[in-house]
Design a protein around this nucleic acid. Structure first.
Lengths: 262, 262
DNA sequence: AGAAGGACCAGTGGTCCGTA
DNA sequence: AGAAGGACCAGTGGTCCGTA
């Protein structure tokens, strides 16, 4: 809507396969990963992020090889105009491990959350400068801004889908790393790993009375993310079950306000 | 949507003209006015709040007198089944002054904000009990709840319209009271008084860098209200103007981040 | 005219499900 | 089959404007 100084940075060219560079940027980072550089410089596209040619139907033989089925060259760093429609799927990787063969690793996944945070910080700075309402969370506005800045690989469904995985990474990196190693070892897929991230978070919330919002809000990098519905429900359920041996429950007073502080 | 224990309290009968009682409840109150009693008991309806007969067209002579034009009896405490469609308009009253003649006073206006706060607290308690997302502001959900609890005289456009007036009352009750007396003295209407409430708030925000959000958030009773758009714009404008004599301004760096701390 | 509030609307949070 | 993300939808913040 409103043009501003940052518009000039949008929609730039894409560097080819900056995997090693990305490896450094996407190191399983807690506080150390912050404010490294300005976001949106187009240098953080990992493992084959490309702009999709806007609804252009490839004209039969023009560049038929290059995206999709072409199995030649497991490394995708050649064939200049390669284009693809979606991000590569995630696989379970250990901390520091580089995903290969048209896959993205979990360090990269978590790095996307750091990028979103940087986009939010920019949106907040702009809002304050303009006297607009200032978002405190990663909102639609931030996703729109990320897209405008060329980070087309960031989208809302994906980020919301894995928020609780990132939460575990933030809150207990050791536990998160152990889980990643275990699930890689077992050859589990990303969906199974993702599911397994819920339980440790419920445990983390228990000492705070299963108040998962309090858990998120207490961590500066996490506070900018909405608590996922399912995680909230699981914490609520755990709180309910914890009081199962208690007194008679009524509809109006179903749950004990201060739960055991174990 | 979800029935709960509080449903039973909704839609009750209305006591007639509890003005004196209301005077006590609606005393121009800062902290002292809080948590006096449970909200929604139907006892706080002021100066002739009535349920409107649901789209019933009064059947010619049934109760033709009683609401609207009937000028008989300036006090409205008689004629049992009196009904009316809208709240009486506000007039500028001094602190403690009771409005008469089908008008509502400003103590009552401010009291509505306290009521909304109590409704929010109830909604928050219910959300926590149910494991739902917990609102931190007076949202549509809270207005819906207020209506369900029989507080049909509370509605969103009205509350949003006068938020900044309530803000001044919270932040500088002396200044607010002085303004009320001055505008009553001059015979100004409510609209003029409302307009005049903006300027003192801009001044209050100045030492905080005209950050009106920070001003609201620093006050517990105010933090639950969204900052009105116009107030935010006025503060932004004041910040801009304060730097008018400064250095050359660019589009990307228009405003001085730390403004004068006068 | 001054004012109260029903009701509308653009953009939100949330996530399903057609897609690859 | 497992997974990425366009696009939809119910309910939001915001306030206009038909009403009295």
């Amino acid at each position: 809507h409103h043009p501003n100084a940052l518009d000039a940075l949008s929609q730039e060219g894409l560097s080819e396969e900056p995997v090693q560079q990305e490896r450094e940027a996407a190191g399983s980072g807690g506080e150390a990963a912050a404010g490294r550089r300005a976001t949106g410089k187009g240098k953080q596209l990992p493992r084959g992020s490309r702009k999709k040619s806007s609804s252009k139907k490839k004209s039969k033989g023009e560049e038929e090889e290059g995206w999709g089925e072409s199995e030649s060259g497991s490394s995708e760093s050649e064939s200049g105009g390669a284009e693809r429609q979606r991000e590569h799927p995630f696989i379970v990787t250990e901390p520091g491990e580089v995903a290969r063969a048209k896959k993205n690793g979990l360090d990269y996944l978590f790095h996307l959350y750091e990028q979103c945070r940087e986009f939010l910080l920019q949106v907040q700075a702009m809002a304050k400068e303009r006297g607009d309402k200032c978002p405190t969370k990663v909102t639609n506005q931030v996703f729109r801004y990320a897209k405008k800045m060329g980070a087309s690989y960031i989208n809302k469904p994906k980020m919301r889908h894995y928020v609780h995985c990132y939460a575990l990474h933030c809150l207990d990196e050791e536990a998160s790393n152990a889980l990643r190693r275990a699930f890689k070892e077992r050859g589990e897929n990303v969906g199974a790993w993702r599911q397994a991230c819920y339980k440790p978070l419920v445990s983390i919330s228990a000492p705070l009375g299963w108040d998962i919002d309090a858990v998120f809000n207490a961590h500066p990098r996490l506070a900018i993310w909405y608590v996922p519905t399912k995680l909230r429900q699981l914490c609520h359920l755990a709180r309910s079950n914890s009081s199962a041996g208690g007194s008679v429950l009524t509809a109006a007073n179903e749950l004990p306000p201060p739960p055991p502080m174990f």
